[in-house]
């Protein structure tokens, strides 16, 4: 009896807290959504119009700009490739750093972290000159490389954290069974750490999807990304609030889809976690 009421209470508290946090999280996005669905004169009206007939005009305006759609497509390609590349390159490095002792390891992993510390504004000119000299300005490849570099330290460090959580006995058993190092890594370690890979994959994708400064500097007309295209709704004389917020909502959709898609494996990762013991 006591136990049950305790459980109910716990449940209730959990829900109350989650809902409070939900309001905090959702309100700005809700507000952006409602701005994007209003007529121009109502967007900034205070007291606000809570009930209004939604109009899709702002969305049409966004889609009429071919530039935004192209930016959207570019960003998707860049996001997927940059995420994949930083995972392919970064996860093995993280594993090596978490499992093997060698001279200079601590300094090495700390150095990996420092590559993220430079303020982006001061590296813009060197990177611009560099990508120009290898002829990659205004290409998706340049931005993919940049975003991979930006994402790598995160992938390496977060994955290293996950590998440290996994007991070393796992791959030892595999090695005893005759697996090679690579075999043990791919067959035993990767499946066990899938949750972490998914989490860090989401983070890398989101970082790439939203990255603005280097995308601005390295691209021009052809390889322009979605965040740069969004900025273009701010113009002289007015901020086009309607299209700006509409673009802000549209740009969220792939993130939602991506998170929902990979979220499945997050759940699967959970079951692996339960099984592995």
């Amino acid at each position: 009896m006591y136990e049950r009421s305790c459980k109910t209470w716990k449940h209730l508290i959990r829900w109350v807290l989650l809902l409070v946090f939900l309001v905090w999280t959702v309100f700005p996005i809700f507000w952006m959504l409602s701005m994007s669905l209003k007529e121009k004169t109502d967007i900034l009206a205070i007291p606000p119009k809570w009930f209004f007939l939604p109009v899709l005009r702002n969305y049409l305006e966004v889609f009429q700009r071919g530039e935004f759609l192209r930016g959207f497509f570019n960003s998707a390609v860049i996001g997927v490739f940059a995420t994949a590349l930083s995972l392919i390159v970064g996860v093995p490095a993280a594993y090596a750093l978490s499992r093997f002792k060698f001279r200079g390891r601590n300094n090495l992993q700390f150095w990996v972290l420092t590559t993220r510390m430079m303020p982006p504004v001061v590296v813009l000119i060197p990177y611009f000159l560099f990508f120009r000299s290898i002829g990659l300005l205004d290409t998706k490849l340049a931005v993919i490389m940049m975003h991979t570099i930006i994402g790598l330290p995160l992938v390496i460090w977060v994955m290293r954290g996950f590998f440290l959580e996994i007991p070393g006995a796992l791959e030892e058993a595999a090695l005893v069974d005759g697996c090679t190092y690579w075999g043990a890594f791919i067959r035993v370690i990767l499946p066990t750490s899938l949750t972490g890979i998914v989490a860090v994959g989401i983070l890398s994708f989101i970082f790439s999807w939203n990255e603005f400064l280097s995308a601005l500097v390295l691209t021009g007309y052809r390889a322009k990304t979605a965040p740069v295209a969004v900025y273009n709704f701010i113009s002289f004389q007015n901020i086009a609030w309607g299209p700006l917020t509409a673009a802000g909502i549209i740009i969220l959709i792939p993130v939602i889809v991506f998170v929902i898609l990979v979220h499945r494996s997050l759940v699967r990762g959970l079951t692996f976690g339960a099984v592995k013991g």
Partner: peptide, 15 residues
């Protein structure tokens, strides 16, 4: 035509 709004325009042009 490469078009950017003010702050972005200045940053990119100066680079």
């Amino acid at each position: 035509f490469d078009i950017y709004p003010e702050e972005a325009f200045w940053t990119k042009l100066k680079v």
